[in-house]
Design a binder for these strands. Structure first.
Length: 876
RNA sequence: GGGCGGUUAGCUCAGCUGGUAGAGCAUCGGUUUUACACGCCGGGUGUCAGAGGUUCAAGCCCUCUACCGCCCA
């Protein structure tokens, strides 16, 4: 018999060490390109090669894995495709930081090529680490199809897509105001800018009129240093305070230039004094105003956020914040500051490094969204793509309906190089997949490629169809596209999900996925966000070492209510580690008792009622679990399985079975039920379920190759189920009565029972064997009148009375007191219920069924209390 | 400014289409009974944020308020 001698406690380290290798070696996760069942595919959201995975990844990766494993067991043709992301800005920053720390060098000291070699090295080691972590989690990924967002293949596809979009006029180059991070030294898209509320100061500055320096207009600003680049003062054209001044000139303090006062509808009359300074080179609103009024744009802040341009010598080269102070000091000494006040406003910060971003005019590449967005909106509106939970649709629509063109160029080295070439002779711009040999216009050969790379999210947007080989019209693409599910966090709905939908529709000619599963954030056990600075971040590998990947996966699954954040508590993980041990020991019990002669199928004629009861319960469980799965309520499925195993199979069925171990039929049910449990559990806890399954089945097949349990008519036994439920009820009541009266748990005592329901009485009579064992009964008698017997402790439940004989008179007095308390409590409840039934509209308006039920309950309470009253009389 | 969540047992959270509340952990009492002390048996614990409304009936639906959190501009 395989699997004998299971260790007394479960060792997750041992079990989780080797199964992954064997699954992989047996090609369990590698489907053929040609389908053998209904295709079901999920593309892994590629983790960044910035280091190692955090606990949030464990969630985003585990949930689809659970879905994938079940689908596979249900016979779908499943692909779960892995990959990693080059994560341009994040990775480059990390390598730069390391370089600085280790050698003191900047990337410029190495040059582009040498630096990129360094990043590639980093990528390889990070990828190795990530893949190792993923395997530890047990994810059923097909590594033979692994992809990288910056592989040669991806570079070819990205160039092709770029050239195509350029050809369609959807990619263009333009000079606009964009956000730039002075620290990361690149421009950013609007999405990469995070607005944070900042306590600042609003300074009111006097701008003297050219004609009369004694008169001035007061403007309010949070950024005084930008006044050096002012080209006008703007007021609302209908503002009575200022409209007469329109057309006049201001002598700009410090700079000494003359600038006009213009009228513009975009001026907010409520802000400050209603007159605003116009700095078109450094403010997006001012930029627009300047365009309308054909004003010059004077750049006074450079790419390093230092002062530059036609400004007084003393400010040149100062950092923007240092200059702010200098300007304020100088204005104050000139008596030009009217006042300053505390002011809370939103300031854009770089998502990566939290530096205050600088609006900045430059020539960049943009993706036009006007034609790409509408089909993407329509696809979601037409339910071709569902969001789970549904509420995220609104968020998606809100953003998509207000979408702006996307700035896709970045001044970085690590990423997809933009396939644009500039002729040095005639300045012609050439966009092409391959580097052109000569300029088609002037035949010049001095061509220089654009130094910029693409926003990382550009290649990410192409991920679902390019990973499947859209570029080669591969069989994989035809089989697995559109993919089934995209599982990801809400934080990247705009960055990623929306863009995948746009690109997928445009190039893949179909939605990239059918369902978007949005999961929440992992927080610590106090509900706080995890972060390195708070030192409350947990490493998934630590948890796996401590409690096992199975326990971690189960914890995440049972807590992951779609769209809700998870407060991850270590004590809870420990609880599911204990659950694994529980399963192990239940299996140990089964394995110890198997004799090898168990019939392979359930013989309904030979099995006991207890056997039928567990089969019936199992069948109900299977039905509910499948419903939960289909509604993406994995937390519910996990919860159902947990309670079935612990509260039904272990707590009751294994105990029942101890009375029937000589029966091969019972042993076969013991075994069969366990195997079904392991199958149900496998998606959640792949390691322990496989280990036990193999020990029992003798390595005939892997668990993932077996069929996921489904409801079967074969296991419908309502009568036996009801009988055993009665038994459970009476056992529980007896145990309670014993405990309440401090009767030693292990002491076998005589037990007397009385039952008013003939059917239930039959049930119990039939199963006294189990009752005696579970209630520690010396001898059980079911009698018609308890009063005639020895006095004893009473327990009363629906239809049943229990009597445990007293040993002495102290017992009697104690019992009397308890019964009086209970009698009073119940009497109050009955009174309340009768009042409800008598007065009000309840009796008149509630549905008959509800009232009937209510009356039934009331009647039961009345009867129960009558019994208690009678007992009190007997004992008095 | 616009929008979205949350507020349920000491803690962290479930509670699907309204019929008087559940889990895990914690806690208390008992217990080493032939799978498991990572166990077993049993117990206690809640004006379901507040106010109002709809309804025979509200944790669940509607309105308002308060507090906490998030997103967009």
């Amino acid at each position: 018999m395989p699997g004998k001698n299971m260790e007394k406690s479960y060792d997750h380290l041992q079990t989780e060490s080797d199964w992954y290798r064997r699954w992989e070696e047996n090609g369990l996760f590698t489907p053929a390109s040609e389908p053998t069942g209904i295709p079901f595919s999920i593309i892994l959201p590629p983790p960044n090669v910035t280091g190692s995975l955090h606990i949030g990844h464990a969630l985003t990766l585990s949930l689809p894995d659970i879905i994938v494993r079940r689908k596979k067991m249900q016979g779908f043709h499943v692909l779960w495709l892995p990959g990693v992301d080059h994560a341009g800005i994040a990775t480059q920053m990390m390598v730069e930081k390391n370089l600085k720390k280790e050698t003191g060098q900047a990337k410029e000291d190495l040059g582009r090529e040498a630096f990129l070699r360094l990043v590639w090295e980093w990528k390889h080691s990070s990828e190795k680490q990530i893949v190792g972590q993923i395997k530890k989690l047990g994810l059923a990924l097909d590594w033979s199809r692994m992809k990288f967002t910056l592989s040669d293949e991806m570079q070819r596809v990205v160039r092709r897509v770029f050239v195509a979009l350029y050809g369609e006029g959807k990619i263009y180059q333009g000079t606009y105001m964009v956000n730039r991070c002075p620290s990361c030294k690149t421009v950013l898209s609007d999405l990469e800018v995070e607005h944070q509320e900042v306590q600042g100061r609003l300074t009111y500055i006097r701008y003297p009129l050219s004609r009369d320096a004694k008169r001035w207009v007061v403007v309010a600003t949070t950024r005084p240093e930008t006044m050096l680049g002012d080209v006008a003062v703007a007021v609302h054209p209908r503002d009575p305070r200022y409209k007469k001044l329109i057309g006049q000139e201001i002598r700009l303090p410090l700079a000494g230039r003359a600038i006009p006062i213009v009228g513009d509808e975009d001026v907010d009359r409520e802000f400050g004094t209603g007159a605003v300074k116009v700095t078109p080179a450094h403010d997006p609103v001012d930029f627009k105003i300047a365009l309308k009024h054909r004003l010059e744009k004077i750049v006074v802040i450079d790419e390093q956020a230092r002062m530059t341009g036609p400004i007084p010598e003393k400010y040149a080269g100062l950092d923007r914040f240092a200059c702010r102070q200098a300007v304020l000091d100088d204005l104050r000494s000139l008596g030009l500051i009217e006042k300053a006040e505390e002011y809370t406003h939103n300031v854009g910060h770089c998502q990566r490094c939290e530096t205050v971003v600088e609006p900045h005019i430059s020539k960049q590449w943009f993706l036009k969204t006007a034609e790409l967005a509408p089909p993407a909106i329509a696809a979601v509106r037409g339910n071709e793509i569902a969001f789970i939970p549904d509420k995220w649709k609104k968020v998606y629509f809100n953003w998509m309906e207000n979408i702006q063109d996307w700035c896709i160029s970045r001044q970085l080295w690590w990423g997809h190089r933009i396939p644009a070439f500039y002729c040095q002779e005639c300045q012609e711009v050439l966009v092409s997949e391959a580097e052109p040999e000569r300029c088609p216009r002037c035949a010049g050969t001095r061509l220089v490629q654009d130094p910029d790379v693409l926003d990382t999210w550009f290649s990410s947007a192409l991920w679902p169809f390019t990973t499947l080989g859209w570029q080669d019209d591969s069989p994989d693409f035809r089989t697995f596209y559109p993919t089934s599910i995209m599982a990801t966090g809400f934080d990247i709905i705009f960055f990623w999900v929306a863009r995948m939908i746009m690109m997928g529709l445009h190039f893949g000619k179909a939605v990239p996925f059918r369902e978007v599963l949005i999961n929440g954030l992992i927080r610590d056990e106090k509900g706080q966000k995890m972060s390195k600075t708070k030192n409350n971040a947990v490493d998934p590998l630590d948890i796996i070492r401590e409690s096992g990947a199975d326990a971690l996966r189960f914890t995440l699954a049972i807590q992951a209510v779609p769209g809700m954040d998870i407060a991850l508590s270590l004590s809870r993980i420990k609880g599911y580690k204990a659950f694994a041990n529980k399963i192990w020991n239940a299996s140990r019990f089964v394995v110890m008792n198997l004799q090898g002669d168990e019939p392979p199928v359930v013989d309904a004629a030979r099995v006991s009622d207890a056997d039928k009861w567990i089969l019936h319960s199992l069948n109900l469980l299977v039905q509910k679990v499948n419903e939960s799965f289909d509604g993406y309520r994995l937390y519910e499925a996990a919860d159902l399985i947990y309670h079935f195993i612990w509260d039904e199979y272990c707590d009751w069925y294994l105990e029942f079975s101890k009375s029937d171990l000589e029966s091969p039929a019972t042993r076969s049910v013991l075994r069969l039920t366990l195997l079904r449990i392991l199958q149900l559990l496998h998606p959640f806890m792949p390691f322990i379920s496989e280990e036990i399954y193999q020990r029992i089945r003798g390595e005939k097949e892997f668990l993932i190759q077996t069929e996921f349990p489904a409801f079967t008519r074969e296991f419908v036994f309502p009568e036996a189920h009801a009988a055993v439920e009665t038994l459970k009820k009476v056992v529980a009541e007896t145990r309670k009565t014993r405990t309440e009266n401090r009767i030693e748990p292990n002491k076998k005592i005589p037990i007397f029972l009385k039952c008013d329901a003939p059917l239930e009485r039959q049930h119990l009579e039939k199963h006294l064997k189990y009752f005696d064992f579970l209630s520690r009964s010396l001898k059980t008698e079911i009698v018609s009148d308890l009063a005639v017997l020895a006095k004893g402790f009473r327990g009363v439940s629906q239809n049943w009375e229990i009597l445990l004989p007293f040993v002495d008179d102290q017992d009697r007095r104690q019992e009397l007191q308890r019964l009086r308390g209970e009698h009073d409590k119940l009497a109050r409840l009955i009174e309340q219920m009768e009042a409800k039934l008598a007065g009000g509209d309840f009796a008149a308006k509630a549905p008959a069924e509800v009232i009937l039920n209510f009356k039934k309950n009331l009647q039961e309470y009345i009867e129960k209390n009558a019994k208690i009253g009678k007992t009190i009389d007997d004992l008095s």
